[in-house]
Structures are given as structure tokens and as C-alpha cells.
Amino acid sequence: MKNLFAFLFISSISFAQTNTEIHLFDIKEVNGNWIATNAKNISNNDGYDSQPHFYNNNTILFSSNRNGEIDIAKYDVISGSKTFISNTPNGGEYSPQRIPYSKNISAVRLDKNGKQRFYKYDINTGENSELIKDLVIAYPVWLDKNTLISSVIVNDTLELFISNLNTKTNHSITKQVGRSLHKIPNSNSVSFMKKNKDKWEAWSLDPETKETKKITNTGTTEDVCWLPDGTLLIPYQKTIYKFNPKKDKRGSLFYKFKDENINNISRITVNKNGTKLAIVAEVSPRALAQEQLEGYNKRDIEAFLKPYAKNVKVYTYPNKLSYEGIDEMRKRYAPMFEKTKDLHCKITSRIVKGNVVIDEELVTANGNTFKALAIYEIKNGKISIVRFVR
């Protein structure tokens, strides 16, 4: 049980600390090339926003940070409005999806006491009830209104299960699976991700025969989705690749994003018509560097530390480790913020290259002004390494 909850917290809560946004695009194929237009940040929210799901062609569900809690948000594509379905002060909801042939939705609920359960929610009132009581479901997909395919936490791994809600039976299929599960268009099969050493593979499952079959390798990518014609979309960093198992021998370019606010694409989904694409991406490295700067100039220790990883490493350039960890950073900066009333940093030059930000700074402290240069490296949506050039 101890290992189960340790894994539960690692897989859900620690990931939820990453600052991500959900971007929506219109997509279409023009002369054999796919284009993405009318970009819109539909979450536009500080903190974790992820796991988008098209409730219908014009409504998107997703998990969204609200006052430090993760609730189910609903976005109306036509009006551009966002409302919340759930309000769970002692926990949060993840993986919201529409239950087939129903207006209701399902979601994984994670309580602060570590209990993880699978619930049904009324889309209008948020009233809820537990659906499956004897499995710790992490990532689900509905095959039909009575059949659920899900990645389930078993000891210290994820295991693929088929659950029949009518007969209340659960059947284990395979182990070492991932979080991305989808119905495969024009078939009765479901795709799931399987770990092979340190790489991911996309597999198919026939729920009737229980047969599984490898589709393709996806490398380090663990999130995929399908176009209506049966083409698999595979994101990697700022690019999405496509692969049709029925006619392609290898993957090819679907679309490459140039917006610096789109980094390390993870969750990805397409509406039923194949006209809209929703992606989850980490915020711009520029935004993280700016966030810590503003906290610094306000002498607000919590705001300053927020963009940093818990295990942040601080070096004197190039590779002399000065200290490690956000707790040590707090010990060093909190007294300075308290005592140095004139503390201020002005950026004279900022260069952003990939996941690296280079700031030339003019720092004022205790009546003195001096130049400094800081290099920030971003990983998983947080500043993980800082190098100061003395």
C-alpha cells in the first residue's frame, strides 16, 4: 500500500506542478500539407492545465488549476468562455471524459489523503458518484457506455485493464503501460502505450479477443492521438509527426510550431471531425525567467521561488556547483529580500534559445550597482539550472 500511494503521488501530484497551457488550433490539409491556424490559449492560467478532451466538436473538457486545486473546466469554442464543472476543496479531478451515449462525464479523483477513485459527474451540477470501486484507475478511455479500458495502479506500475460496468468485472491485459489511451478510428480497437526499456511503443488492443499488437515505436514520446482517417499523431518538443499504420512505412512531418510559447508538447487530442487540435505545452522559458525576476524585484520569496524546480542546481559558470535545492535557495534569498530594501534587477539584454534564457543584468543592492549575467536552463516547465557568470 505504501508503494502504491508513493507511485500515485509521483504520477499525479508532482506532474501537476508543471506550468502548462492548453492551445487550440483549427487544422486542415492543403495540397498535401497540414496547417494549423487561429491559435488560441484556452486555459490562459497560471499552473497546471492539461488532459484536454473534446466533449463534442465545440466543447473541450480539461483539468485546470483553480486556487491551488485541480478542477474540471469546460471551454466553449464558439463563445470562448470557460466555466468549472467540479469544485473539490479536498482533492482534484483528472482525465475528464464524456461517457458515451450520456451527457455525464467521468474523471479520476485524487484526494489530499492519497485516495484515488473513478467518478461520474453531472455536467450541469457537478454532482458525482463512484463508478468503479475496486481499481485504482489512473488513465481511462471509454469503449462504450458499459466498457472502460484503463491504466490502473497496481503496486508500483501501471497495468492495462478492461472493465465491464454491467457485470462489474475487471480483466487484466498487460503491464508496464502508459497514460495515453484512445479509441482507434474506424475500428473496435483501442490504442495504448507500452514501455520497452527506456522507450515508448504504441500498441492496439482488441477488447473482444483481448489480442494486443504493436503499432509503432514512438521513442521518448508517451502521448499520441488519432486523426479520423486512422493517422497517428506523435508530438515531440515543438513538432508533431504523423504515421498511418495502414499505408506508411515511417513517420513524417505533420506540423512544426514556431511560437516560443509552445514547448515540449505532451497531451494532444483532435475533435471528431478532425478540424480542431488541442495540445498541452509548457510555458515559454522567457515567461519563467520573467516570473522569477518580478518576484526578485518585489522581494517576494514565494513568487521568486515558484518557477524553480525543487532540485534546482546553481553554478558559478561554467560548472562549479555553488548549491543545490530550492530549500537552500530560500535560505540564501529570503534574508536578502528582508534586509535589502533597495534591491532591484534590470534586464539590459535577454536572449532566448530553445530551453535556455541568457539575461544580462544591472543589479542594485545596498546603494551599489553592478553588472551580472545569468543563464537559466528550463526542464519540465521549471528552471532546473542557473549559471552565474562572475
Rank of each mutant, 00 (worst) to 15 (best):
S63K: 10
T147M: 11
N113E: 13
I70E: 14
N263W: 00
K371S: 12
S64G: 11
V141Q: 13
K272L: 10
T157L: 13
K242Q: 14
N87Q: 13
F370I: 08
E282V: 01
R350Y: 03
K103Y: 09
I265V: 04
N380D: 10
W200R: 01
V356S: 04
F54N: 09
S63Q: 08
V312K: 00
S189K: 14
Y139S: 15
L110K: 15
S349C: 06
R98Q: 14
R267P: 03
L61T: 07
I132C: 05
G178V: 01
V108Y: 06
V108T: 11
E93M: 10
T157N: 15
V283L: 13
I10E: 15
V356P: 00
K310V: 02
T18S: 07
W34R: 11
T18I: 15
Q176L: 15
T212G: 04
L143A: 11
I351P: 03
N45K: 12
N124C: 05
D76S: 06
I326T: 05
A365I: 02
M1A: 12
K382H: 11
T157D: 15
R387S: 10
F5W: 08
E21L: 08
Y296G: 01
N217K: 14
G126Q: 09
F161K: 07
Y75W: 03
N44R: 14
N271A: 04
N297M: 01
N261Y: 00
V136R: 14
P285S: 06
Y376C: 11
E21W: 03
S150P: 01
L373K: 15
G126R: 07
N3C: 09
D359I: 00
N38P: 03
T220V: 09
D122T: 08
Y255W: 08
T212H: 07
Q290C: 02
L135W: 13
A36V: 04
N87T: 06
D248M: 05
N128M: 12
P52R: 11
E130G: 06
T18D: 07
I240Y: 01
I137F: 11
G274P: 00
G80D: 08
S191V: 02
H23Y: 15
I262T: 00
I60T: 09
P307G: 07
E294S: 07
N38A: 14
T231M: 09
L277C: 00
D156E: 15
T167Q: 14
L110N: 12
G91N: 02
I78M: 14
T231H: 09
N319S: 05
L232R: 04
I149P: 08
C345A: 13
N104P: 03
